[in-house]
Design a protein around this nucleic acid. Sequence first.
DNA 1: CCGCCGATCCTCT
DNA 2: GAGGATCGGCGGG
Length: 220
Amino acid sequence: MTGPELPPGSGRRLTRAFFARPPEVVARDLLGRVVVSGSGPTTVAVRLTEVEAYAGADDPASHAFRGSTARNAVMFGPAGHLYLYFVYGMHWCANVVTGPVGEASAVLLRGGEVLTGSDLAALRRPGVRRTADLARGPAGLATVLGWGPATNGHDLVTGEEQLRAGRRVADDALSTGPRVGVSVAAQVPWRFWVTGAPGVSAYRAAVRRPRRTGSSSMGD
DNA sequence: CCGCCGATCCTCT
DNA sequence: GAGGATCGGCGGG
């Protein structure tokens, strides 16, 4: 009768102060925490197992590196808000804004383990066979949660979408390494993941492949 | 398991 | 006009 509920032990909601710290500190501390979207029968809860930190103006790999634009405006606002961006013409990915207002640092939510609402999660991810893969990768995680353009700017501290305390991961249970898919500052080890956990994606270095030559002026 | 590759369109230069 | 904080299918070892 009742829909899915919050998993036992999901704990208190994380506070503004939690997010208002440096991105690499927040990132590491987010592992094992629980993202919740929806309510009642539409509840989906995911335990975070992979995240990535991005600094603001000092980080060439950050979307905020070249200053404020229409797309990244949320990054320059208060910590604890969601920054959703559209990439490769088809995927939405979710960040949590960190640090003080104006710094524009953030943490990309890269993967997790579905704790609640796996039926709905599977509906949102047709074609995914293994339950452990439902929230694997930043686009998959956002999709499972039902997040998209309408979610951009949402406040995790006061809104319906939430981040709950869950259980912090011990130092000896996590790994760190270079960030996935970035073509600059790739050596910065700001990717954090729970070693061997579901939802952790394989490392992929950024690759620039030659684009098909335009066929506009030549006969087809 | 691993690596290559296309899809697809928004964003900023 | 180029390139992107990706994904999943396919083919080879």
